[in-house]
Design a protein around this nucleic acid. Structure first.
Length: 807
RNA sequence: GCCGAGAUGGCGGAAUUGGCAGACGCGCUGGACUCAAAAUCCAGUGAUCAUUGCGAUCGUGCGGGUUCGACCCCCGCUCUCGGCACCA
């Protein structure tokens, strides 16, 4: 009988559900080793799954099934990151509540995921939009607030007036000066926002990367994002004034070369230090800057702009008077919002100095300041007591001098900014804060959590820059027991909030007393394997690490880091080698694949395409090939009359012994290293060998089905049952191999002459080198190759190669 | 511009403590089965030359180097992908 994927896949999916095969016991089992394998949970979009989703999910499912068969206690959950902008935009358009729309999408995602036969424990499903879930998201926020790590601040934010009737987006959501979603322009605007002090954890977030088994590229991206930079804070007194200007510099050694100072236009010192003659020009420049979008400030405008503010500062090291300018190439949000300009040795300062004809004084030998700034090393010149010293020695000496003269000290700065945590949206976790009329602010008491999102079908932009929640006056206005009136905070949390801790909730998903039972957390943490797309390299993964460390400090979680091993699956491209997208018309829908070929074929093909971490193009022929092989595998066991195949035999003539043990060894090692493509290739090699032999001893048949079962579970459950087994293959023992059986009695030795292969020799594995050498020289092909030549040297690598060097 | 990853047949890919380049699959060609086709099974398939048979030469983005021996290590390039992008 030909393999009927529809019937068999439905049968086993039903069986697993009925028997709760993959439900993980709720009480920890300290005597059994655990394995927590996690997928990045999806945002359930209206589009449903694309073939990229099942790639990562198949990889984790194989690992989950493999580890179960090796006797591990496996936690393998799935859930939904269901707050988010698309649902809100849809709701605004259609006058529906985003909740019902979201439920529909989740149902569709779940149907699709289930059709692929993944071994999730669905009893642990979480949904970030459930009040019983976001109660704890709000709880974490309150703890952050209590510890002073959540604060309100009037800060320059990325204001996108055209997005959702005006909203604030995080730095990470701004791409090339436009919003990541929708591509709307972004402007800088000071606004009151909730901010989380992630910078307080900058050092730990940086240093603890060391011990993680993550791709080096991701670690490097996080390091760059955090951007720790060690330098000096140098104080410049302002001439004829009590004020001082502090600057941050990593090149304090070039202080003698400073020829002017630049403040960020937004720096508050500007008001006080601008001379009356320059007032108009400065005001004009600042106005220009404020109306520029980020894009205009960076990409579109590489040309330096700026204005002299009419006052001077004193260089502490030589008393020179330096003009003070403002320019938008100095960022108000980094360092002190002011720099000392050393145009001879910094390209940005150089460009500015050239444009405004400011002096350029070289203080390090080398380079040519007529052409460009010199940033290399060299001996200091024009630098008083630093003359003759190189960069590092000069820096050390200058730091000493600055400390001694109270003109500066060492300082560490980070590119990492605090996390702007409020969004002017409806579809998110409400921030549980009340602003009282008397000017005080308080948290919603923990006993009153969750603070539920009020139901409404009529979402409207508030028009004030506040979220649509501002319209819901009944919800917004509160009166306490003393009759005091206040208003609720109308901000909601960003999508990153719910996804920053969901992996903790899976461990104890129905606990209504706490985030999770500490004993269970202790047993299951950290996550042993986390698989997802590289697009979350900095955002999600940095925020989750931050919250985890905070919870660690609170004593809630027992580990410093949440995810021990991280793997990024590569992208699946369209057949034209381009990224799949609707507009290119190269999107493959997994539903169609499952209907035509079955889930096992999709799983097998996606794992066979190439290494998990690489991007690779879809191939319709390749997919059909995977399906052909599944049927070929089936025919090893089941004949055309639906009987057990004549290949199956209880007699073992030993012809397949070596290759069987090799296969068990290779598949086991490859799965451990997640090299699924080569594991599958080895199984194909074995199947080819069985077809040659026309025989399959039962002991190898059962082993073979087990080896393949993590990859194509439906097929293998069916064959396992037909081989006479009563229980699911999911908990069958993983096959073992005998190392002795994997090596042959005879090994092949390559004989080279001058590095070129001239002959092959069949020899005993433990042959002596001298014997090997003799055999090689006696070979006819070798003799021909060395005829008329003098042998200089013979290199023998035991059990591998003989290389004869002759000329 | 800076940081990171990569480049292997017609295609996806395999092979690294430096030791037979191209496993496995796709595609293609031929054969068997069939009235025929599909499906299946078997064989061949890097290029060039030779071909009656053994075979020979070249070949892992490009140019050098180290080595008995290099896809692998070193130096210098080109291109592709990902990230960052006035962070002082």
């Amino acid at each position: 009988m030909v393999y009927d994927h529809n019937k068999i896949e439905a049968k086993w999916q039903h069986y697993w559900e009925q028997n709760q095969t993959f439900q993980t016991e709720n009480s920890p089992k300290p005597e059994q080793e655990k394995y927590y394998v996690l997928d990045m949970f999806p945002y359930p979009s209206g589009q449903g799954l694309h073939v990229g989703h099942p790639e990562g999910y198949t990889a984790t499912d194989i690992m989950a099934r493999f580890k179960r068969m090796q006797g591990k206690n496996v936690l393998h959950p799935m859930g939904w990151d269901a707050f988010g902008l698309p649902a809100e935009q849809y709701a605004l358009k259609t006058k529906h509540n985003p909740g019902s729309f979201t439920q529909q999408n989740i149902a569709n995602f779940k149907r699709q995921i289930k059709s692929l036969g993944f071994s999730y424990d669905w009893s642990r499903e979480v949904n970030t939009t459930d009040a019983s879930y976001y109660k704890w998201t709000q709880w974490i926020f309150e703890k952050l607030y209590e510890k002073g790590l959540a604060y309100e601040d009037e800060i320059e934010v990325n204001w996108a007036p055209d997005l959702m009737g005006g909203t604030v987006v995080a730095n990470e959501e701004v791409v090339n000066g436009k919003t990541e979603r929708g591509g709307y322009p972004v402007y800088r605007k000071p606004m009151k926002q909730w901010v989380l002090k992630i910078t307080a954890y900058a050092d730990r977030l940086l240093d603890d990367l060391e011990d993680l088994d993550w791709p080096e590229s991701i670690k490097q991206m996080q390091r760059n994002w955090i951007g720790r930079s060690t330098g000096a804070r140098i104080t410049f007194p302002v001439v004829d004034c009590q004020d001082t200007i502090d600057v941050f510099s990593t090149r304090a050694d070039t202080l003698f070369g400073a020829t002017y100072l630049v403040l960020a236009p937004e720096n508050e010192l500007v008001d006080r230090l601008t001379s009356s003659e320059q007032q108009a020009a400065v005001a004009d420049y600042r106005k220009q800057i404020a109306s520029k979008s980020d894009l205009e400030r960076t990409d579109l405008n590489k040309d330096k702009t700026g204005v002299f503010i009419g006052s001077y500062a004193t260089n502490p090291v030589n008393g020179k008077h330096l003009p003070i300018w403002i320019s938008d190439y100095v960022l108000s949000s980094y360092g002190t919002g002011a720099v000392m300009a050393v145009p001879a040795h910094d390209q940005r300062d150089y460009d500015f100095a050239k444009k405004f004809a400011l002096p350029i004084i070289p203080v390090i030998d080398g380079g040519n300041v007529e052409k460009e700034a010199y940033t290399g090393d060299g001996q200091h010149i024009n630098s008083g007591f630093l003359n003759g010293l190189n960069r590092q020695k000069g820096l050390d000496k200058m730091m000493e001098w600055l400390q001694d003269h109270h003109a500066g000290k060492s300082q560490v700065n980070y590119k990492l900014r605090d996390w702007i945590f409020s969004r002017q949206r409806y579809w998110g976790e409400p921030i549980p804060v009340i602003h009282w009329d008397d000017g005080t602010t308080s948290l919603v008491p923990e006993t009153e959590l969750p603070l539920r999102l009020p139901q409404t079908d009529d979402l409207k932009p508030s028009g004030t820059g506040q979220s649509p929640l501002a319209n819901l006056t009944e919800w917004v206005n509160v009166t306490d027991s003393q009759g005091r009136h206040g208003v609720r905070d109308t901000n909601t949390m960003p999508q990153w909030a719910g996804s920053s801790w969901y992996y903790l909730r899976y461990i104890d998903p129905h606990n209504d007393q706490m985030i999770a039972d500490p004993a269970k957390l202790k047993y299951w943490l950290p996550v042993d394997l986390y698989v997802g797309g590289a697009e979350h390299a900095v955002l999600h993964l940095l925020y989750a690490r931050f919250w985890h460390k905070f919870l660690y400090d609170l004593g809630v979680v027992p580990t410093k880091e949440p995810f021990q091993k991280l793997v990024n699956q590569g992208m699946i491209l369209g057949t034209n080698h381009e990224k799949m997208s609707k507009s290119k018309g190269n999107v493959v829908n997994p539903d169609e694949i499952v209907a035509e070929y079955g889930a096992d074929t999709l799983r097998l093909y996606e794992m066979f395409m190439g290494p998990l971490v690489e991007s690779k193009p879809w191939s319709t022929e390749g997919l059909a090939g995977a399906n052909r092989w599944i049927k070929r595998f089936w025919r090893l066991f089941i004949d055309d009359d639906n009987q057990m195949s004549e290949f199956l035999t209880t007699e073992n003539d030993g012809n397949l012994t070596k290759i069987y043990h090799q296969t068990v060894q290779k598949v086991t090692n490859d799965l451990e290293k997640m090299r699924f493509n080569t594991a599958i290739s080895q199984l194909m090699v074995f199947v080819n060998a069985v077809y040659k032999e026309q025989k399959l001893p039962t002991e190898y048949a059962t082993g073979l089905v087990k080896l393949l079962s993590p990859i194509t579970p439906h097929l293998c459950e069916e064959l396992w049952q037909r081989l006479g087994n009563k229980n699911s293959i999911a908990y069958a023992d993983w096959p073992s191999y005998d190392e002795q059986q994997t090596v042959a009695d005879q090994i092949e030795i390559v004989v080279q002459v001058n590095g070129k292969v001239r002959a092959h020799l069949q020899v005993e594995p433990n042959i002596k080198n001298s014997e090997l050498q003799e055999l090689a020289l006696a070979n006819q092909h070798v003799k021909t190759a060395v005829t008329g030549k003098k042998i200089h040297k013979i290199v023998v690598v035991p059990s591998k190669i003989v290389n004869i060097v002759a000329s």
